[in-house]
């Protein structure tokens, strides 16, 4: 019987006030070990104050082949941006 340790994704908050950011991945037998390994692999120099680990198989990712359908519709919606609107020059604070 040979089972490999599953793959985990590691997210680190570098300081309070900032979001957790993806730092990389690692292998570990369970969540406790994944946290301990993440501490040793990704925060040897005070890079973080909080770590999240999640088993990689639980992440659902979009497929870049569908990027057209997914993201292009936003491209022609310029009216979602403030610069779309014409205002007289003497209007302040807007």
């Amino acid at each position: 019987m040979k089972k490999n340790w599953p793959l985990w994704e590691v997210f680190v908050r570098s300081k309070n006030g900032l979001e957790h950011r993806h730092f990389g991945s690692l292998h570990a037998a369970d969540e406790a070990m994944a946290l301990e390994n993440a501490r040793d692999v990704y925060t040897r120099r005070n890079e973080g104050v909080s770590i999240w680990v999640v088993e990689s198989r639980h992440i659902t990712a979009s497929n870049p082949e569908n990027n057209g359908e997914l993201f292009e519709p936003a491209q022609d919606k310029v009216y979602r941006h403030p610069t779309f609107y014409d205002l007289p020059d003497d209007v302040k604070h807007m």
Binding site: M1, K2, K3, W5, A29, D30, M33
Partner: peptide, 13 residues
């Protein structure tokens, strides 16, 4: 050690 860690993880889950 790797096998034991995996077996322990399975038991816990």
């Amino acid at each position: 050690v790797r096998d034991a860690a995996m077996a322990y993880a399975e038991k816990q889950s």
